[in-house]
Write a protein that binds this DNA or RNA. Structure first.
Lengths: 192, 192
DNA sequence: ATATTGCTTATACAAGTGTCTAAATCTAAA
DNA sequence: TTTAGATTTAGACACTTGTATAAGCAATAT
């Protein structure tokens, strides 16, 4: 990302970011990601290509920013000080809500993009990485004597696996059932 | 893949496939995947671009074929009729060997490509998908009452997680230790 | 109000991509 | 060995990409 998201954006920058991300999200429901060109995004957003490249490295970068925007909608406090197991469930629930709130977008996207393609992958990975960051901070030892990093990766990928199963492969399940899946697969109490 | 790998290739086709894949594998140790162009591959291999596109859709397609070639080196019989748990370990061991045999290539690749980038991902996913196919055939029920497809995905991704940990993140571990990781993370006997 | 600074934009460039044609060449079977 | 069918190839096409430059514009501080 060329644009620095930490500093507060000017009104203009806000409009630009918003415009590009809205256009991208709209296009994702209309054509496969690989057919979307920076030209098209700029034509629709009414900005010159040069402006696009002032903000983003490429369309992957923009789409990652879109996930960031979507994640913002929900993600709030950092919920510190909880024990690892609780943190995991807490964030699982939040991600469950993000996926649920964007079910429609996901459905549209899957009409044009492979389940295992780059686009869906970037979506999934965005949230997996978020979770990894969070878990890394809250897990610091392992009952089973396994390397912590390995456990963090394992938990994160299992969380998104369950979410994929429910929301991308359409095996609807309420939160309770989702917890059940997660607990059976993870056997959390075994290693943290 | 434009070329049909099921029919037996003519001598010419064999030469062409071999030439392109050798070139790609060589280039992977010299520059990041995104810098590798079809033009460059063709120049080095001494084939015109048109020929490249007779065989492959794009460079992703070629690189997937490279993984196919690498997998061929090892993968032999289909080891049918074993119980699911044994199948899992059997194929884990084979993948362990594939990764070990290509340690040098992997090391080189990681000099130029992100651990989470497209290239490494395509490598990992190739083997994850293979394993999924195999496990799907050998697992048909679940002790824990979980959907079988979910279990298959979970096992496959955990297997490649351990291999990533050992061979891509360089936490060397012999097969025995690798089994230990796998068993602790998976708790196989809990659900199959 | 004016100068300063920084972002936006028009335009151009050198490269790459994937497709298509028609001619040249190969190959496998009669 | 010949020939019909398939494959390879040269060349061109319309399009995309990411970068660079210099002109234009807008907000800020003096």
């Amino acid at each position: 990302m060329k644009y620095d998201l930490t500093k507060k954006p000017t009104r203009g920058a806000q409009r630009t970011l918003e415009s590009f991300s809205t256009t991208m999200i709209a296009l994702l429901s209309k054509e496969p990601f690989e057919k979307i060109s920076v030209n098209e995004i700029c034509d629709i957003s009414n900005f010159p290509r040069a402006t696009f490249y002032n903000y983003f490295d490429d369309k992957f970068d923009l789409v990652a920013y879109c996930w960031y925007v979507i994640a913002q909608e929900i993600e709030v406090d950092q919920a510190t000080g909880l024990k690892a197991e609780t943190t995991l469930i807490t964030y699982f629930d939040r991600l469950y809500d993000v996926f649920k709130n964007n079910q429609m977008l996901l459905d549209n996207v899957l009409q044009y993009n492979d389940f295992s393609g780059q686009l869906v992958n970037s979506f999934i990975n965005y949230f997996k990485n978020k979770l990894q960051e969070i878990l890394t901070k809250s897990i610091d030892y392992s009952k089973a004597g396994l390397p912590v990093e390995l456990i963090v990766d394992h938990c994160s990928q299992t969380v998104v696996l369950v979410l994929k199963w429910i929301f991308l492969k359409h095996h609807e399940a309420d939160k309770q059932r989702a917890h059940e899946y997660l607990e059976k697969l993870l056997n959390i109490e075994h290693f943290i």
